[in-house]
């Protein structure tokens, strides 16, 4: 279960990035522009529910999902999460090109919170499932983007965490890859997992989510049935 209560997030954007001591001494204190990325956002994702976040660029979707993931501390409000989380904000976070494919499985898996022992036992199977057995010992940098995404997704699948946070991570890859992702997400939904989901693909949102939340300029504009919310989203002025 995810419970977001009255969350606001204010970023302080320096007028000019003054990262050097010399300029700091010369010009004195920073001056900031404050930017309200989220304004008093509340939402609830019950356990077993798939909820999608919909909104234009800059509406605060990614900020919200990062607050839930614990990456940004909220400026106000609280977030409660019950159940272990798998934050998939980008496929292959922590991948390193000069390490072997097998080593990267271990690295990314642990970053996602999968126990090391599980990964050591499953690494070969993960690589095989991605169709990369022949390249298990190759440097990751020698693989194509598609191969890397397949590998990363294969690792992410092993995370049995029942709460998923997904930020457009699945927008990469070709049709076959996407179909596999969607099939996996369906399986997770049928199993009773929980997900908070950012995507710009209406078909995906409509097919997978029980409910959609529309964010606009950092605030919740509406929530409800996917079809209605997609209509609301389309009616928003930019």
């Amino acid at each position: 279960m995810i419970e977001v209560a009255g969350v606001s997030k204010v970023f302080r954007v320096p007028h000019q990035r003054r990262r050097s001591l010399g300029r700091w001494l010369a010009e004195g204190r920073y001056t900031y522009e404050t930017f309200h990325a989220l304004k008093d956002v509340s939402l609830r994702v019950a356990s077993g529910e798939f909820v999608g976040l919909l909104g234009r660029n800059g509406s605060g979707k990614s900020t919200l999902i990062r607050v839930v993931a614990g990456i940004y501390p909220p400026s106000e409000g609280t977030v409660r999460v019950t159940g272990r989380m798998a934050p998939i904000l980008e496929l292959g976070v922590g991948f390193h090109g000069t390490l072997s494919v097998l080593d990267n499985v271990l690295l990314y898996g642990v970053v996602l919170g999968i126990p090391r022992r599980t990964l050591l036992a499953d690494a070969d199977a993960i690589v095989a499932a991605a169709g990369l057995e022949r390249f298990a010992d190759a440097h990751l940098e020698n693989l194509s983007t598609g191969m890397r995404m397949r590998l990363a997704f294969g690792v992410a699948l092993r995370s049995e965490a029942p709460v998923l946070l997904i930020d457009e991570a699945l927008a990469v890859g070709d049709e076959a890859f996407r179909e596999r992702c969607v099939a996996e997400l369906r399986r997770r939904r049928d199993r009773g997992d929980t997900a908070l989901f950012v995507s710009h693909e209406m078909a995906l949102l409509e097919g997978l989510c029980d409910r959609l939340v529309v964010l606009h300029k950092g605030a919740v504009r509406g929530e409800g049935k996917p079809a209605e919310m997609i209509a609301l989203y389309r009616s928003l002025e930019s």
């Binding site: 614990g70 501390p73 909220p74 106000e76 999460v81 019950t82 159940g83 009773g192």
Partner: peptide, 15 residues
């Protein structure tokens, strides 16, 4: 919930 249901997380403004 298959596993980790006892896992709770509370995120608050830091300070």
């Amino acid at each position: 919930m298959s596993q980790g249901a006892d896992h709770h997380l509370l995120i608050r403004p830091s300070g």
